[in-house]
């Protein structure tokens, strides 16, 4: 007597690949898991961006910040020039 699996419907949950995915974006204070305040659905349309300084933000959030004059292109967390980690 044998059983054999024919179909396997399973479920996976995706998260951003980071140490603590419940962490909050330093700019919008929303969880990385959910999207930036301007987007409705988390996912590739609202990705995250890591800087070389190891700080991470919603891409839309950090873009908005960099575009302001006050930012002078710095990371809001450590005031160093923000460069995206490749």
């Amino acid at each position: 007597m044998k059983v054999k699996v024919k179909r396997w419907h399973t479920v996976a949950i995706w998260q951003w690949d980071m140490e603590d995915s419940t962490d909050l974006c330093g700019i919008c204070h929303g969880p990385f898991d959910s999207c930036c305040p301007d987007c409705r659905i988390p996912g590739d349309n609202c990705p995250l961006l890591w800087g070389k300084c190891t700080h991470c933000f919603h891409l839309h959030c950090i873009n908005k910040w960099i575009e302001t004059n006050d930012s002078e292109g710095t990371c809001p967390m450590d005031r160093q020039i923000f460069e995206a980690a490749t």
């Binding site: 007597m1 699996v5 024919k6 419907h9 399973t10 951003w16």
Partner: peptide, 30 residues
């Protein structure tokens, strides 16, 4: 599948949630 998925969606990770899956199994009884 995981490999395939992560190749499509960078910067993510997948966690399996077994309690929500279901399956069809063939069982041979006498």
């Amino acid at each position: 599948f995981k490999e395939f998925y992560l190749s499509k969606h960078k910067g993510r990770r997948l966690m399996w949630q077994n309690s929500l899956g279901h399956s069809v199994v063939k069982a041979h009884f006498p």
